[in-house]
């Protein structure tokens, strides 16, 4: 008798669950990306330099073109994925994502180029100026082995220490060290924030270091670093990632857009395609944020007020 009761209850339970599941299914319609006409969604990247692109674009879109701007802070890879689905309309600074370009731009054609940012990025190996001043010939990679002892740390053991950047950044350092027969051990700093904190600390204490570094970088205003010359970059020399033994190429930084937004985004899309400023402009606003501790909004406002002639050309003509 008890058993029967339980069984019946269980059957009812199963039936109810089934009904609920059906109900959920019957509400079937594919998810909507939910972009309305006057809202633009921009990616806020994880480093200050690129954050200010977004801040300035947001300020102008909101105050000059009457758009509402949503900014989404996240890592780059998820941001590319979001952009392909239209959840983010544009990324304003990209240092090169060959894998994603292949997947979304050439592959399912959900992302298109929005032109260049106007800033040219350069990646390389750098040492502090106080090291280069003392050892002038250190700026050629051929002499690096001679100085391996100088860069020795407990972490790198009997080799010189090479400090790597954030794991998501373009880098061939491991291959370069191996292929150029350098007596160095690449050490992961883990993330950009910790990489910067480490360099700042070493610089402050005048310790020698050799690191992956790039320009534009707002910290170049406070840290004087000198580049170490690597074998010259030639077209195609970086084709096979394992065999690379040449320098990093100069990267004109790119802007990317969701394909539908590029077509139907109206003035906003037009404005973002026109957005183009110099390395100095970007560094200046980045310094406002990182050094002077202004909020990105305040920094953008300050720059916009002082540089009308630059941004006027970005506003689409009516």
């Amino acid at each position: 008798m008890n058993k029967n009761h339980t069984a019946r209850l269980r059957r009812t339970g199963i039936a109810a669950t089934g009904a609920l599941a059906l109900l959920a299914l019957s509400a079937c319609s594919a998810a909507d990306t939910g972009s309305d006409d006057k809202t633009v969604s921009l990616h806020t990247p994880t480093w200050v330099g690129a954050e200010v692109n977004t801040a300035v674009a947001k300020y102008l879109l909101e105050n000059e073109l009457d758009y509402k701007v949503e900014t989404k802070q996240m890592d780059e890879t998820p941001a590319w994925d979001d952009m392909s689905q239209g959840k983010i309309d544009a990324i304003l600074e990209d240092w090169g994502h060959p894998k994603e370009v292949k997947r979304y731009v050439e592959g399912n054609k959900t992302i298109v180029s929005a032109g260049e940012l106007g800033v040219t990025g350069h990646i390389g190996w750098f040492v502090p100026k106080y090291v280069a001043d003392k050892n002038p010939d250190i700026t050629d990679y051929k002499n690096l082995n001679k100085y391996a002892d100088l860069f020795k740390t407990p972490e790198s053991g009997d080799k010189g220490q090479f400090i790597k950047g954030d794991p998501s950044y373009v880098s061939h350092d491991n291959a370069l060290i191996k292929n150029l027969d350098l007596n160095y051990k690449p050490i992961e700093a883990g993330a950009e924030a910790t990489h910067l904190a480490q360099l700042e600390q070493l610089y402050k204490n005048k310790k020698p270091f050799l690191t992956y570094w790039w320009t534009p970088q707002w910290m170049n205003a406070t840290m004087d670093l000198v580049e170490v010359k690597l074998p010259e970059y030639k077209e195609g020399c970086d084709k096979d990632a394992k065999k690379i033994e040449c320098a990093y190429p100069d990267v004109p930084l790119q802007k990317w857009m969701n394909a539908d937004f590029a077509k139907e985004g109206g003035d906003a899309a037009e404005f973002l395609k026109n957005f183009n400023w110099s390395t100095d402009d970007q560094n200046l606003v980045a310094k406002y944020v990182a050094k002077d501790k202004m909020t990105p909004e305040k920094a953008a406002e300050k720059w916009v007020k002082e540089n009308k002639s630059t941004w006027e050309q970005w506003i689409p003509k009516k």
């Binding site: 890592d75 890879t77 994603e100 998501s168 992961e188 883990g190 993330a191 910790t194």
Partner: peptide
């Protein structure tokens, strides 16, 4: 992995940030 520990922790971080 985020502060230079390397090993598995770093690989997990790399998996996320470098897709």
């Amino acid at each position: 992995g985020l502060v230079g520990g390397g090993g598995l922790g770093f690989d997990v971080v790399k998996g996320l940030t470098a897709s």
